[in-house]
Structures are given as structure tokens and as C-alpha cells.
């Protein structure tokens, strides 16, 4: 089934599929870790204090790595009142302003992520000993990707979007 409307440039679509794969792996880790915690209570040999941390950080990775993908594919939860109030050229202007605001917010978060990476360099997580700087690199990547895609969207504001369908996410 092909849908009409604007799509992201090919480079961003390729990067989007990488982001989605990272999220899929994180989801699998969450499932296995939480299940592991259940099983390890009955099989003490499998007891490993890292599972809780692994699951929680995987959820964080999933969340932040999807930020850019969802901006690029019009998939974030947003309030679409204005779609019914404003039509045509005015609506394109609204979309451009909206994308610009999104880009600015993402850029500010990239700046914050950078500060956190610097501030927490050398610190590690309690159970697994993962460098915390690596964890803050995920939101840095996610929001940088989001900022780039939002900037692209400013220029594509005049085109109609493909409606987002989670079931067909690629």
C-alpha cells in the first residue's frame, strides 16, 4: 500500500531504520531482563543484580532513540486541533513555526546532554558499572537527530504529511 505525501530524504530514512532497530533490541532486552528476574527467584543460580538496571536503562535508551524517528515520521503524540481550524497556506506556516520550535527545543536538549556527559564523566552506574556518559550520549544522539529532522520539516511544511501508522513502522 503506497500513501501519497511528503517523505523524509533517503539518508534520514536509512538512519531512521537504524534508530528503530536499536529500539527493537532495547525492547527485547526489557522483555528478557524482566522475565529473567522472575525466573531467577526460582532458579537462584540465575540471580544477577544487574537485570533491573539493564531493563530500566533499556527503556531509557528506547525512549530517547525514538525521539528523532518520531519527529521525522510525524509520529509523536501531538494535539491536532489546529488542523481543523487553519487550512492551506496558513496551515503550512503553522507547521513551519511548529517545526522551528521543535528544532529549538531539541537543540537545547542536545546542549544539556553535552553538559551532563561532561559533568558525569568517570561516573559509573551502581550495578553494571556502565559509564554514565555513554547513557547520556543516547539522548544527545536522539535529540540531535530530532533537531535535524525538525529543520528539514521547516522546509517541507508546504507538503502534505503521510499519516503515521505505528503498525507499518519501518
Amino acid at each position: 500500500m503506497t500513501r501519497e505525501g511528503w517523505r523524509e530524504p533517503a539518508v534520514l530514512r536509512a538512519w531512521g531504520s537504524v534508530e528503530l532497530w536499536i529500539a527493537v533490541v532495547a525492547l527485547a532486552v526489557i522483555f528478557v531482563s524482566v522475565l529473567w528476574q522472575v525466573v531467577s527467584r526460582f532458579v537462584p543460580a540465575l540471580n544477577w543484580p544487574g537485570v533491573g538496571e539493564l531493563a530500566s536503562y533499556s527503556l531509557i535508551v528506547l525512549t530517547f532513540i525514538m525521539v528523532g524517528y518520531l519527529i521525522g515520521n510525524n509520529g509523536h503524540i501531538a494535539i491536532q486541533i489546529i488542523d481543523y481550524l487553519v487550512k492551506g497556506r496558513a496551515f503550512a506556516v503553522v507547521k513551519a513555526v511548529s517545526a522551528a520550535c521543535t528544532a529549538v527545543i531539541c537543540a537545547m536538549l542536545v546542549w544539556e546532554a553535552y553538559h551532563l556527559i561532561v559533568a558525569y564523566s568517570g561516573r559509573r552506574t551502581a550495578a553494571l558499572g556502565i559509564p554514565i556518559g555513554i547513557l547520556y550520549a543516547v539522548p544527545l544522539i536522539g535529540f540531535a537527530s530530532g533537531a535535524i529532522r525538525a529543520v528539514v520539516r521547516i522546509f517541507a511544511a508546504g507538503h502534505e504529511d503521510v499519516p503515521f501508522d505505528a503498525a507499518e513502522a519501518r
Binding site: Q37, P44, N47, P49, G52
Partner: peptide, 15 residues
């Protein structure tokens, strides 16, 4: 968790 081991307890992780 080291304390659990030191005392000989079976620690279980529960939030």
C-alpha cells in the same frame, strides 16, 4: 547485596 552474602541470606531483587 554484599551484606546479604556476608550474612548468608538469599537476597531477592524487588523494587
Amino acid at each position: 547485596l554484599a551484606n546479604a552474602e556476608a550474612l548468608g541470606a538469599n537476597a531477592v531483587a524487588i523494587a
